[in-house]
Amino acid sequence: MAYTKRFDGRKFDEPREMEAKVGVIKNADGSAMFRFGDTIAVAAVYGPKLFHPQHMQNPQKGVLRCNYDMLSFSVNERKKPGTSRRSQEISKVTEWALSSVVNLDSYKNTVVDVHIMILQANASTRCAGINAAALALAHAGISMKELVSSVSIGKIDDKLVVDVIKEEEDYEDGEGATDIAMAFMSKSGDIALLQLDGKIRPAELKEAIKLGEKTSKDIYELQKKALKKIGEES
């Protein structure tokens, strides 16, 4: 049986309902929430601040540190709190994706900390995390080249789908499931993150990236709207 209808009844190129909110954590220098359906990510930015230990400081440019974590109640089966192989990897790729847009040159010898917490997970958590973190960085007044918008594209059996959910990730019939997380820069359209889990043909991958680019534009509009909303209030 081929994959003809999505589990939640969405169109193949339709993302889940998205929501972005800036300024959710009062004590942080910048914060934001991003939601894809029932995947909720909250990001908080602290800094630029004094970097200790001193030997880790970089006199040429600032340091960006990302910390991604899923809270223990974010999934159905309780997740053991703390870092794991998975969360370390995601922290690292998020850091790389974000450091390509942050102007760290203006923050020599300092550190910018980004904490991403997943409150509720239903796949695409790293994408929601990057979207929230980009907003939080902008909210913290950090100098950035542009924003980043991230979305996951899946290949379920032989169909390309936008914004994968958990059930689709676990799909095993036909060609199985492939999950591609990608992030695009808002102005230049460059790719900040591209990860692939599964198998896909080169031609299909190109198509998937095109689909991701299209969806990321919608996400960018949403991010812009969320930032402008908080700007009007302050």
Binding site: D29, G30, P48, G141, K145, G231
Partner: peptide, 26 residues
Amino acid sequence: IIATRFGLSDISGRLVKVIPLSGIYM
């Protein structure tokens, strides 16, 4: 001319700048 910070754009004469709304003191 592209903004690199979140804030209010300000054009005075030929100079274009962004007045930041948030961020810590530099």
